[in-house]
Design a protein around this nucleic acid. Structure first.
Length: 197
DNA sequence: AGCACGATAGACT
DNA sequence: GTCTATCGTGCTT
């Protein structure tokens, strides 16, 4: 794993870029759903040419949104229980996405605490399933544009620098060594710490 | 059968 | 306090 790397500030997100670039670009961006959310601190990239990706075997009913226009949501059910949120990226039809794994809550904390049934702010959205519950992600949001309500994406300020860590993705068996997990270095809101090298 | 997960229980430092 | 193992849950292959 590489040491923390400074990332240049930017004002807009290019969703047509490759998944690993979008995944890094989304760190520090504020994500809200119906005004509830926070600052993205952890993402993972998935690509068509990637045996760990839902899109790897081509379009199906479940992953259809991944093959639609970039900048939209791909929502899927995980382990029969959780709803998880991805950002579709890459050229339209390419089948790439970025899993939003964790955020630092900034807006609507009371709402998130209700939905999660706990108080500890660090556990409200530290993991894709927890985030899904905290933001009330559900399949009605599948395919919806992320620049329109109920979504809101607020790119970080042009002057803001973010320290990004990378490492292996979590909870996968195939391509487990690919370092396509991205996180804000040392954030207390990560789903898990990054392994030391 | 196999999951892009999380809560819990139990062991250990 | 930390770490690890177990299992619920429903949908895809």
């Amino acid at each position: 794993m590489a040491p923390p790397t400074p990332v240049l500030p930017h004002l807009a997100i290019d969703f047509f870029a490759p998944a690993h670039e979008v995944a890094a670009a989304l760190i520090g961006v504020e994500l809200l759903v119906d005004g509830v959310g926070g600052r993205i601190v952890e993402t993972e990239a998935y690509d068509r040419d990637d045996p760990a990706s839902h899109s790897h075997r081509g379009p199906t009913l479940r992953n259809a949104a991944m093959f639609g226009p970039p900048g939209r949501a791909y929502v899927y059910r995980s382990y029969g229980i959780h709803w998880c949120l991805n950002v579709v990226c890459g050229p339209e039809g390419h089948g790439a996405g970025v899993l939003i794994r964790a955020l630092a809550p900034t807006h609507g904390l009371a709402r998130m605490r209700e939905r999660r049934g706990l108080q500890d702010v660090r556990l409200l959205a530290a993991g894709p399933g927890r985030l899904g519950q905290a933001l009330a992600i559900d399949p009605r949001l599948n395919g919806r544009p992320l620049d329109q309500p109920p979504f809101e994406l607020r790119p970080r300020a042009g002057t803001e620098q973010v320290q990004i860590q990378t490492g292996p993705r979590i909870g996968i068996t195939r391509a487990a060594d690919v370092p396509w997990r991205f996180g804000e270095a040392a954030s207390p809101f990560l789903s898990r710490p990054f392994p030391r090298r």
